[in-house]
């Protein structure tokens, strides 16, 4: 598997990364190097082996349906918007986005 320059441009755009035009070519080469390196894994025979979904031997922990307080609960709008460049009445204020 390999990627071309246009794919790199598209992926950068989707990830909202500003990649200057003159960096696209070198980045394509670097990414292809990484992909080629990972591709060595294809040499391993995985017939009959379940895909690994985690490196830890545990089940998904679940919580009860209880409204919490503290960082994992609500009631702290001031903290939620603390880092926002602009706020009003505890709303985030952002440039107009209309469909």
């Amino acid at each position: 598997m390999s990627v071309d320059k246009e794919t790199v441009r598209k992926v950068a755009k989707l990830a909202r990364l500003a990649v200057p035009e003159d960096r696209l070519e070198p980045m394509t080469n670097e990414l292809n190097g990484i992909l080629k390196w990972i591709e060595q894994l294809n040499e391993v025979d995985v017939d009959g082996v379940d895909p690994m979904t985690s490196t830890v031997d545990m089940k998904l922990p679940m919580r009860e349906d209880v409204v919490q307080s503290g960082p994992t609960g609500g009631g702290q709008p001031d903290k939620v918007v603390a880092n926002a460049p602009r706020t009003e009445d505890s709303f985030f204020v952002v440039p107009k986005v209309v469909e």
């Binding site: 919490q68 960082p71 994992t72 609960g73 609500g74 009631g75 702290q76 709008p77 903290k79 939620v80 918007v81 009445d89 505890s90 709303f91 985030f92």
Partner: peptide, 12 residues
């Protein structure tokens, strides 16, 4: 609820 009242730091 009021604006951002029901928001945990996970949701944000």
């Amino acid at each position: 609820a009021g604006p951002n009242e029901n928001v945990s730091l996970v949701d944000a």
